[in-house]
Every structure is written in structure tokens, then in C-alpha cells.
């Protein structure tokens, strides 16, 4: 039993890290195409080895620690940033169960009855690393970037949480599997369009992606909280950012787009992970498309959007959903 869990955990972590490497390539290629360029095409066939070349380059870069930085926290911060990103998808089911070597293996790591709350808890601690990185660098741009990131993530967490409550109420369960199975007849994105849009916007802000990438606004803050980081420590921040993108896409697909459900998944359960992967890739496509399209919005407008638009609308949506759920039964 313990071996089975360990293998699954390893598979999840390896998939996410490999996914991270190829999401960077995916993003660069897509952005290039949208800007009528070709994108990376030198390393390997069609640039497929580009992530490996990047990793090798970053490993051989010099590690710098600023003289007056808080050394302990400076080294700890990238680790604290990447761990929540790696463990948040533990509750996301990849499928029902398959039979392998005469054993029935459920395609999920943790089937807890508070799955959605687990995601909320991990989201709320994922801000630590970024703030600590900004503060410990002893650099005004990094500190400002870290403070901005914290303010932004704490603000959008509320809207994100309320958007996630809508599917919970529809499925009347916090278990991710119940929520996915509740979408057999219709995706919650169709039944809960408001919650879906709020989740999408708030999740972009939560992972500091364009157009909400204020913590890293180059014109104002050099590179934001990771200004002073170099070599693999910088790569770790980069990794956390892209893994968070994948995680948000996985969670969003499970909550609103039917997760592993799709045609013939009842007969062939191995299709489950494939459907989930397709949905995640589509979600990432839209995220990158938005980055290529929209300019960064100003900081005060970002806060206004979060507190004065997304949060009240999400609250209202929860209220209406609750009434409808009680009335219909």
C-alpha cells in the first residue's frame, strides 16, 4: 500500500516537473507563432531539446548571494515556493481505476473528504516563498515585488475560494472525485459560468500570470521578487511558476470542465488521464494566448478588480447558487 502511494506520488511529481520543462517550450513556441516568429528551433528536432539546454545552462551559471542578504531565508525561499506547487495536485483525480498486473489501482493519490479545502490551504501558504524571497534579498525592487505579490495573492484568494465553492455546492461534497463525477451530465462550466470566469481570472492573478503579473513588472521592479536570484535558485522560482500554471489548469479542469470525464471513459478507464491532459493543454493554451494578447494592468486597477468586482460577484454567485440548490433539491 505504502509502495503504491510512493509510486503514485513520484509519478505526479515527475509528470509535473517534466510538464514544467515542456510548458516553457510550449509557451515560447506559441508566443513566437502569435508574434509571427518561429521560436526556439535549434536544440534538437523542432527545438524539442530546448528545455534541457536551458537547464544545463542554468546549472552552470554562478550562484550569487547578495552581501547583506539574510542567507538562511534567501536559500530557503525557492524551496518554500516550489513545494506547495508540487503537492497541490495530490487531491486531483486522474481517472477512476485501472487494472495493472492483476491489481486494481485507483488513479488518484489522495481521496480525502476535504479535497477542495486542501487546495485552498495550500494556495494560502504558497505566498510565503515569494514574500520571503523578496524580503531576504535586501533589495528594494525585490522587497516591493514580494509585498505586491502578497497583497495580490491574498486579495485574489478570496474570489478564488468563493468561485471554488460553487462546484462544491453543486456536487454537495468537497471530495474532488464527487465533484468530477457530478459533471457526468453537464460540465459545471456550463451550469456555473460566472464561477468559471471568476476562477479563471482569479487563478491567473494567484499565479502572477499576465495580465496580472504585477509582482514581476519589468519596467518598474527589474524582475520583482527574484531580482537577486541566479542559477538554479532562479530556475526553481521559474519551475514553481510553471508548475502552478499546470496545477491551476488541472484543478480548474476538474472543478469546471469535467476532469477526467469524456466519451468512452466508462469502458476504457485509461482514457481518463488522457482527457485530463487534453483539457490541461487547452487551458494552458488560453493562458498563454491571454499573455500574448493583453497588456499588464495597473496595480490599483488590479486591486479594484479583485476587491470591487470579482469578490462581490463571487459572493453573490454563491448566494444565488445556494438558493437554487435548496429550491431544486
Amino acid at each position: 500500500m505504502i509502495i503504491e502511494w510512493s509510486v503514485k506520488a513520484l509519478v505526479i511529481i515527475l509528470t509535473l516537473t517534466a510538464g514544467f520543462a515542456y510548458t516553457t517550450l510550449y509557451e515560447r513556441k506559441l508566443l513566437a507563432r502569435m508574434q509571427v516568429r518561429i521560436g526556439p528551433n535549434r536544440a534538437g528536432p523542432a527545438g524539442l531539446l530546448q528545455p534541457i539546454a536551458d537547464a544545463v545552462k542554468l546549472i552552470f551559471k554562478e550562484e550569487l548571494i547578495p552581501a547583506k542578504a539574510d542567507r538562511f531565508i534567501f536559500i530557503l525561499a525557492p524551496i518554500i515556493t516550489v513545494i506547495p506547487a508540487l503537492i497541490i495536485t495530490a487531491v486531483v483525480p486522474w481517472g477512476r481505476s485501472i487494472t495493472l498486473f492483476g491489481r486494481e489501482i485507483p488513479l488518484y493519490l489522495a481521496d480525502v473528504n476535504v479535497g477542495v479545502l486542501y487546495i485552498m490551504a495550500i494556495t494560502s501558504i504558497s505566498v510565503y516563498g515569494i514574500t520571503l524571497a523578496g524580503w531576504s534579498s535586501n533589495n528594494k525592487y525585490a522587497t516591493l515585488g514580494g509585498v505586491r505579490a502578497t497583497a495580490q495573492m491574498i486579495s485574489y484568494e478570496l474570489a478564488l475560494g468563493f468561485a471554488m465553492i460553487a462546484p462544491v455546492m453543486m456536487a454537495s461534497s468537497m471530495r474532488m472525485i464527487d465533484i468530477v463525477e457530478g459533471q457526468k451530465t453537464m460540465w459545471y462550466a456550463v451550469l456555473q459560468p460566472v464561477a468559471f470566469v471568476i476562477y479563471f481570472a482569479a487563478s491567473l492573478a494567484e499565479i502572477n500570470r499576465a495580465p496580472f503579473d504585477m509582482p514581476e513588472a519589468e519596467q518598474e521592479l527589474v524582475a520583482g521578487y527574484h531580482t537577486e536570484y541566479s542559477s538554479m535558485k532562479f530556475a526553481t522560482f521559474f519551475m514553481a511558476e510553471y508548475i502552478k500554471m499546470i496545477a491551476i489548469a488541472m484543478i480548474g479542469s476538474s472543478l469546471f470542465l469535467g476532469g477526467y470525464l469524456g466519451p468512452f471513459v466508462d469502458q476504457v478507464p485509461i482514457l481518463g488521464p488522457i482527457y485530463l491532459a487534453i483539457k490541461v493543454v487547452a487551458w494552458l493554451f488560453v493562458t498563454i494566448w491571454i499573455r500574448a494578447t493583453l497588456p499588464r494592468i495597473r496595480y490599483d486597477r488590479l486591486m479594484q478588480l479583485g476587491w470591487k468586482v470579482l469578490f462581490p460577484v463571487a459572493l453573490l454567485n454563491v448566494l444565488v447558487t445556494a438558493i437554487v440548490v435548496v429550491l431544486i433539491g
Binding site: 479545502l117 490551504a121 495550500i122 494560502s124 510565503y128 514574500t131
Partner: peptide, 25 residues
């Protein structure tokens, strides 16, 4: 008691960050 545990993390550990920001700012 997983529910209480996760609420503890969300509410308390999450809100410490605000305290932290107060300290810095």
C-alpha cells in the same frame, strides 16, 4: 480531524503572511 487541520492552515498560517507584511512595511 482533517477539516479542522486544513482550516487551521488556511485561516491561521495564511493570515500570518499579513502580519509579516505589517512587520516589513
Amino acid at each position: 480531524a482533517p477539516f479542522i487541520a486544513l482550516v487551521q492552515v488556511t485561516v491561521y498560517a495564511g493570515s500570518i503572511m499579513v502580519l509579516f507584511i505589517f512587520v516589513i512595511m
